Simulated scan of single mutants.
Amino acid sequence: MTKASSSIKSKALKTAIQLLLTVAALAIVLSKTDTERLTSLIRHAHPGYLLGSLLFFNISKIVNAVRLNRFFLAIGLRLSAWYNLKLYYLGMFYNLFLPGGIGGDGYKIYVLKKNHGLTVMNIFSAVFWDRVSGIFALIFLSALLIIPSSFAALYPGEMLWIWVIAGVSYPLSLLLTWLFYRQFMPVFIVTAFESLVIQATQVISAWFILMAMSATAHQIDYLAIFLISSVATILPLTVGGAGAREVTFFYALNHLGLDVNTGIALSLIFFAISAISSLVGILSKIRHEKSGENAEAVD
Rank of each mutant, 00 (worst) to 15 (best):
I234N: 05
A206V: 06
S229A: 05
Q183N: 09
Q183C: 02
L210T: 00
F193I: 15
I209N: 08
Q202H: 13
G243D: 13
F184D: 05
A215Y: 06
I209R: 02
S205L: 01
A242M: 13
L235H: 02
A244M: 04
F184L: 07
A232R: 04
F208D: 00
L210G: 04
W207N: 06
Q202K: 08
E194W: 10
V239G: 05
M185S: 13
Y222A: 07
G241L: 10
F193N: 08
V197L: 09
A242I: 14
F208H: 04
T233K: 03
F184S: 06
F226Q: 12
S214N: 09
A224G: 12
F184K: 12
M211H: 05
V190G: 08
E194Q: 10
M185V: 12
V231W: 04
Q183S: 06
A215H: 06
I234L: 03
A192C: 13
L196Q: 08
Q183M: 07
F226G: 08
I198M: 03
T216K: 06
P186M: 13
I225G: 11
I189G: 14
T238N: 03
Q219V: 02
Q219P: 05
E194R: 13
T238M: 08
I220Q: 09
F193L: 12
L210M: 04
I220A: 09
A217E: 14
P236I: 03
I198R: 10
A224C: 09
A200W: 10
V197K: 15
A206R: 13
A215I: 01
T238H: 13
I228Y: 11
F226M: 14
T216P: 01
T233R: 04
G243W: 02
A200K: 10
V197I: 14
F226A: 15
F208T: 00
V187N: 14
I204S: 01
S195W: 10
S205P: 06
V231C: 02
F208Q: 00
V190K: 15
Q219S: 08
V187G: 12
S230N: 13
V197M: 13
A217I: 10
A200L: 11
I209L: 03
L235T: 03
V190S: 15
A242K: 14
T191C: 11
I225Q: 13
Q199M: 06
V190A: 12
G241H: 01
A215K: 14
G240M: 08
T233Q: 05
A215W: 01
I228Q: 04
Q219D: 07
A217M: 15
G240F: 07
L196A: 09
A212W: 00
T216I: 04
P236T: 02
T238C: 10
Y222V: 12
